[in-house]
Design a protein around this nucleic acid. Structure first.
Lengths: 121, 121
DNA sequence: GAGATAGTTGAACGGTTGTTCAACTGTTTG
DNA sequence: CAAACAGTTGAACAACCGTTCAACTATCTC
């Protein structure tokens, strides 16, 4: 059974376990799925956005109150809310001069909960 | 019932729902927890690292084979493996000149699976 | 309509981050 | 021990990203 081969593409190695590589390549998700996944996690990878998600969990909050809760400017919060909006992680409702934001669904909380479990080990 | 107050700290707003803010501040996780959480998600927020995690799932792989599978240099992969190592997301075993990496535990897969569910909506 | 306030937005700045490159360590083999 | 190869590492560069600032829209009130 042949296991090694010389000069496989895209790698400066000279000896490779080509069967393993072929098998793994087969099992890998599409490139677009990998990008979607990492883009999704990128949203959570910022402490400001994470704080916002916790803040607006349960009871909706207006931008000004979120800013005050986090000790940040309205502008900074609004920029992050835009990103959360574009990722469909939050929904909002206008009420006079205020805009009240809240979590889009419980899916988001599930994922954060899983991560919290992992961290506490 | 008093609901508004002027000039709350850290916010240029003049009228604030102070009760909501107090309640939310109470319910928020520690600042360190928020940083730990976002740092954790930051690891997943890169498509190279995401690809590596899928590649080394199940059967362990050496650095050279990972590089070949992803079409990247050993150096670039090694840099990312270092980050995954420091986050305890992967474990490794030396075998002669090779170093074989694999997932640290099934917890990681659970979280990615949850995210995949969310994306497919 | 004028003034005040909530929220959004685009440009700019500074810090972060991923890849490249070159040099290095460590192991195997002749 | 010398050559070859797997893997790691630090510096440098470029691209990306979050906050700030200033200007803007929209709504409410007088």
């Amino acid at each position: 059974m042949k296991v090694y081969e010389k000069n496989a593409p895209d790698c400066e190695c000279e000896e490779l376990h080509t069967e393993v590589i072929a098998k793994k390549r087969e099992a890998m998700p599409d490139e677009s799925t990998l990008y979607d996944l990492s883009d999704f996690f990128k949203i959570f990878g910022d402490s400001t956005r994470m704080s916002i998600l916790f803040a607006i969990d349960g009871e909706p909050m207006c931008v000004c109150d979120i800013a005050s809760t986090l000790g940040m400017t309205k502008s900074a919060v609004s920029h992050q809310l835009k990103i959360l909006r574009q990722s469909d992680l939050v929904t909002y409702k206008k009420s006079g001069k205020n805009v009240f934001y809240t979590l889009a669904d419980d899916h988001v909380k599930d994922i954060i909960e899983k991560a919290l479990e992992h961290i506490r080990e």
